[in-house]
Design a protein around this nucleic acid. Structure first.
Lengths: 180, 180
DNA sequence: ATAGTAGGTTCCATTTTAGAACTTGTAAAG
DNA sequence: CTTTACAAGTTCTAAAATGGAACCTACTAT
């Protein structure tokens, strides 16, 4: 399966990875959040080849996570700034950092510390339910089919990644709905 | 720069990506959280080549995100189950899903819905400060150097990815500390 | 006149990947 | 018994992605 096929998978994880799921893209975005904006800055910080960087920046601009913004005309030079869509990647970087801080330390401790402006404490943000506010993790969550899957099932398409066990459950859901 | 060099970068994002930052690994873990455990199950759900899958599963076992657990002897067959380290990837998948749900929809709506067992509501978990509990995002957070970076600076090593602007700030921090 | 900066592009060798075929040992179906 | 299926791989080759170095262009500073 190729990148562009992943993009059309009926799965938000797969779709997101089709944009940011390579070796470099999230590192570029990390740098954006730390204040980098220019080609050479990214190249020096990250250490990828100029070729790859051109490619990845173009992709991020295409997908509208970054905006290419001219800052001089002659010679033409641009900087890359985060759009709203790009800024929304922040939680992904925060959770990746959290995992790395916990599980990938060398002997020297955490590389960077997050601080919460409001309470002025060091923080490693955690997920909480956006309805009741309680903290939430894999053990107190479950999934059900959303409209995106149900509509495909109604059209006879079975999203490849959904385990048979769940598919059956989802089809039962459909039948129950139909009987109403 | 190669994968194994990324692993030793002084950055928790880079280190995490050295384990899960390719096209397939997070999709394998997604499937684990949805209940998949066996080779063929992953292969069918995800649609990657058997060759790649072997490789990725081995890497996940090496890094101890998955445990390879024999379930019969003749012929030898195993299943792959999440370890604590693997389960801790869940927040990453949740935030990736959140972004995909918001920014990568086709016309049919969200593929899967998350539910919170306790309050029984549909939820898209959000990050909150683990000290004060308030919701938190890029605009109300900032970073400072942690021991992992400071110790490297003291040894004269400059972590490549830290923008010069921040490096200077960090070195000032060191000088202030030294003057105490 | 030379070196440096910024943001690329071009080229080629190396590495990684996709996809299909093959393997091994068992069990079930005809 | 012979074929088919299943599970979990391994092997092979062509195609795609990548790394790294060199080159290009239009300024600016020394």
């Amino acid at each position: 399966m190729r990148w562009n096929e992943i993009e059309s998978d009926v799965c938000s994880v797969a779709r997101t990875l089709s944009v940011v799921g390579d070796r470099w893209t999230l590192l570029i975005l990390r740098d954006c959040f730390l204040g980098s904006r220019r080609f050479d800055e990214f190249q020096k910080n990250i250490g990828l080849s100029r070729h790859r960087l051109t490619d990845r920046l173009n992709k991020l601009v295409e997908h509208e996570l970054l905006l290419k913004k001219p800052y001089q005309d002659n010679p033409p030079r641009s900087e890359y700034v985060l759009t709203a869509k790009g800024k929304d990647i922040h939680p992904v970087l925060v959770t990746l950092t959290g995992w790395g801080n916990k599980w990938m330390q060398d002997g020297d401790g955490v590389p960077l510390l997050y601080h919460h402006k409001k309470c002025e404490h060091i923080t490693q943000p955690q997920l909480s339910c956006d309805h009741c506010g309680d903290s939430i993790d894999a053990s107190n969550m479950y999934v059900t089919p959303g409209p995106g899957i149900l509509k495909k099932l109604q059209r006879g398409v079975s999203p490849s990644y959904v385990p048979k066990r769940l598919l059956k459950l989802f089809k039962d859901t459909l039948n129950l709905d139909a009987q109403k």
